[in-house]
Amino acid sequence: MSFNALIHMHGDSWAILVILFLLSVIFKKQKITLWLQRLFYIVMIVSGVAMLAKFGWPGLFIMKGILALILIGLMEMIVVRTKKQKPAAVFWILFIIILIIILLIGYQVIG
C-alpha cells in the first residue's frame, strides 16, 4: 500500500471515527454507531502503526499514537457514562484537549 493511501486512510478514519463517536453519544440507544465506531478504531490503529513503520518509528509520532489510544479510551468512557446518565464533563474536557494535540501533531503544527 502506498504511503499516500495510508495517510488518506488514516485521516479519513479519524474523521469518520469522530463523527461516529458524536452520533453514539447523541443516539444513546443505537448500537450500530458504536459498533462502527469500534471498527474504525481498528482501521485507525492499523493504518497508524503502518505509517509509524514507514516513518521509522519517530518519537513524536509514537507519542501521538499513545495519545490516540488514550483518546479511544476516553471515547469509550464518554459513551458508557452518557448511556448510564453519569457525569462525563472531565472526560469531555480531556477528549477535546487530547484531540487538539493529536491534530496539531498529525498536521505537523507541533514538531
Score class of each variant (00 low, 15 high):
2 S>Q: 13
3 F>A: 11
3 F>E: 12
5 A>Y: 13
9 M>N: 07
11 G>P: 01
14 W>E: 01
14 W>Y: 13
14 W>K: 01
15 A>C: 12
16 I>A: 05
16 I>W: 04
17 L>H: 01
17 L>F: 05
17 L>R: 01
18 V>I: 15
18 V>T: 11
21 F>E: 00
21 F>Y: 09
23 L>T: 02
23 L>D: 02
24 S>Q: 04
26 I>A: 12
26 I>N: 09
31 K>H: 11
32 I>Q: 12
33 T>D: 03
34 L>P: 00
34 L>C: 05
35 W>S: 09
36 L>E: 03
37 Q>V: 01
37 Q>K: 08
38 R>D: 07
38 R>E: 08
38 R>P: 00
38 R>Q: 14
44 M>A: 07
45 I>A: 10
46 V>W: 02
46 V>G: 02
48 G>P: 01
49 V>R: 08
50 A>E: 05
51 M>K: 08
54 K>D: 07
55 F>D: 05
57 W>R: 07
58 P>R: 08
59 G>W: 13
59 G>I: 10
59 G>L: 13
60 L>W: 06
62 I>A: 06
64 K>H: 08
65 G>A: 03
66 I>T: 08
67 L>P: 01
67 L>C: 07
67 L>Y: 05
68 A>Y: 00
69 L>C: 11
70 I>M: 10
70 I>F: 06
72 I>E: 03
72 I>G: 04
75 M>G: 07
75 M>Q: 14
78 I>F: 02
78 I>D: 00
80 V>H: 13
81 R>A: 11
81 R>D: 11
81 R>H: 14
81 R>L: 12
82 T>G: 04
83 K>T: 04
86 K>N: 11
86 K>E: 14
87 P>W: 10
88 A>T: 02
88 A>C: 07
88 A>R: 03
88 A>V: 06
89 A>P: 04
90 V>H: 10
90 V>C: 06
91 F>K: 01
92 W>Y: 15
93 I>D: 03
94 L>T: 04
94 L>G: 04
95 F>D: 01
96 I>K: 13
98 I>S: 04
100 I>T: 15
100 I>C: 14
102 I>N: 02
102 I>F: 09
102 I>L: 05
104 L>K: 08
106 G>W: 05
106 G>L: 07
106 G>H: 06
108 Q>V: 07
109 V>Q: 15
110 I>R: 05
110 I>A: 09
111 G>M: 05
